[in-house]
């Protein structure tokens, strides 16, 4: 049976891992290659790099990061952040990325998703969706797409948007709950379930993981095909091996 995937996510700024990674036996926790190698050894099923470099002058650094990691870590790599035109996608894939995540650019120019999937295939185009609940208490649940780190509403309904992106060729959806991101109270399971049930492609749940049961809930209750987390792995609260063991003991199919 196909395994549910566990994906650690690394924020990279100017070629360095930020938001702190604490492994006692890593020499340079800011070095993406060392961190990626460590996650691979722990059994990560994939690694996602999110480039948060603000200056466009320094965008090239993420390309070198991907090249270095891809030369010695032989699991799938996804890169997101600052992907705006077809040329950005091409550069990342040539550097060794297997998938590229398109976020804001998809909102402002949905045709870009079409162009990218026509050119490179759906298998390597992930559309990242940042959603926030907009329904009030007692109303039917409704989520909207937000940009700029959850600050700007777009008026787009999250479920409809996910369907549209799949029609446009997205091969996977990376779904982040902006309500839960950083809270450590668990995924927004209703949101996850709503998107999973609406689309035919795999969905990665993200935002809110604080413990291992949250990962189980994401796949069992949310129905997610993969779970993405940052801080619980970075701060070595849990290793990926422990997470997988925990999930396996609760009946989730994982790659051990």
């Amino acid at each position: 049976m196909l395994a549910k995937r566990i994906i650690p996510c690394l924020d990279v700024d100017n070629g360095r891992v930020v938001k702190g990674v604490k492994f006692v036996d890593i020499r340079d926790a800011g070095n993406p290659v060392e961190v990626a190698r460590r996650y691979n050894e722990e059994g990560a099923d994939e690694i996602t790099f999110l480039d948060i470099t603000a200056s466009s002058d320094n965008r090239e650094t993420i390309v070198h990061v991907v090249e270095q990691v891809a030369s010695e870590v032989f699991i799938p790599l996804t890169v997101g952040g600052g992907i705006r035109v077809v040329e950005d996608v091409r550069r990342m894939l040539n550097a060794g990325a297997d998938k590229v995540a398109i976020n804001t650019a998809a909102v402002f120019n949905p045709e870009f998703v079409k162009q990218a999937t026509d050119r490179f295939g759906s298998q390597c185009i992930v559309v990242a969706i940042d959603a926030k609940q907009v329904s009030g208490e007692g109303e039917p649940l409704k989520w909207e797409i937000f940009t700029h780190g959850g600050r700007k509403p777009t008026g787009l309904d999250a479920v409809e948007w996910a369907k549209k992106m799949v029609e446009y060729g997205a091969g996977e959806i990376l779904l982040t709950s902006m309500d839960r991101d950083g809270t450590k109270v668990g995924f927004d399971l209703a949101l996850t379930r709503a998107i999973v049930d609406a689309v035919s492609v795999p969905v990665i749940a993200s935002g809110g993981v604080g413990n291992l049961q949250h990962l189980v809930d994401g796949v069992v209750e949310g129905g997610a095909d993969a779970v993405l987390a940052a801080s619980i792995f970075h701060f070595a609260e849990y290793s990926i091996g422990e997470a997988k063991q925990y999930m396996a003991e609760r009946g989730v199919e994982v790659r051990l």
Binding site: M1, L2, A3, R5, D45, G171, S200, V201, P202, D225
Partner: peptide
Amino acid sequence: PEQQAVNGQRLKIPQMGWNQ
């Protein structure tokens, strides 16, 4: 096959991930 359900869940296409 489209719309095939496995363990009550729709089969996602593409198959993406680690299988035996």
